[in-house]
């Protein structure tokens, strides 16, 4: 279980407060107006934002004392998810402890319709293509907690459906605890067990 208890973050002049519990294997959608602190919450969990108070626990263990590299987290940022100067495939191979799961990557790429793009540099891809490549890696990495910051923002209606179904399937299948920030009600109904409105 992921427990976020009395967590406070100071941002500019205001103080953001978080109080959430997420069951292991649960998929939680986080909603709310722009600037309310959705991405900040993901940042705290991943370790890039330091809170001023409260606690963050995973399976009973304190995460706040650990640097980002030692947290059981795989995160999709809003941007800068891919190294621009190496190929999409090389990007996909990163972030795995041992050898990367090439079969799974290929399967995922064909499910999401990006198989032909794997040898191109990200800079030559469209926003939606880049986003799908990044989603694949984020989900396939062997971390129990997955954080997705507006993962489908740049996808068209049809691809969006395919991608969210794929995410849901992989998350269920490998028992991920998944938090996703989204503005779309459709993502919530299609994917999430529960929605949290900040």
């Amino acid at each position: 279980m992921l427990e976020i208890d009395q967590l406070t973050v100071k941002r500019d002049q205001q103080t953001l407060r978080y109080q959430v519990q997420v069951e292991a294997g649960e998929i939680l959608a986080i909603q709310g107006c722009s600037g309310v602190g959705k991405s900040t919450l993901l940042g705290v969990i991943a370790g890039f934002v330091t809170p001023t108070g409260g606690s963050l626990r995973w399976q009973g263990q304190d995460l706040l004392t650990r640097p980002p590299e030692q947290r059981p987290v795989s995160m999709l940022f809003q941007d800068n998810n891919l190294f621009e100067h190496i190929s999409a495939l090389d990007n996909l191979k990163l972030g795995f402890d041992g050898p990367p799961p090439l079969r799974a990557i290929e399967d995922a790429a064909s499910s999401l319709g990006v198989s032909d793009l794997l040898h191109k540099k990200p800079a030559t891809l469209s926003g939606g293509q880049r986003q799908r490549i990044a989603i694949i890696r984020t989900l396939l990495r062997p971390e129990p907690i997955v954080l997705l910051d507006e993962p489908f923002a740049e996808l068209d209606q049809q691809t969006r459906g395919i991608a969210s179904d794929w995410v849901a399937a992989i998350a269920r299948q490998s028992d991920k605890t998944l938090l996703l920030v989204t503005h779309q009600q459709e993502d919530v109904t299609r994917l999430a067990d529960r929605a949290l409105v900040l």
Partner: peptide, 24 residues
């Protein structure tokens, strides 16, 4: 600025980091 968070999030080893940094 562009990739530090990504590298941390991907838990890249020192060697991997050097390998990716070099072409850049």
């Amino acid at each position: 600025a562009q990739y530090q968070q990504l590298s941390q999030s991907l838990k890249l080893s020192r060697l991997q980091q050097l390998r990716i940094e070099w072409p850049f």
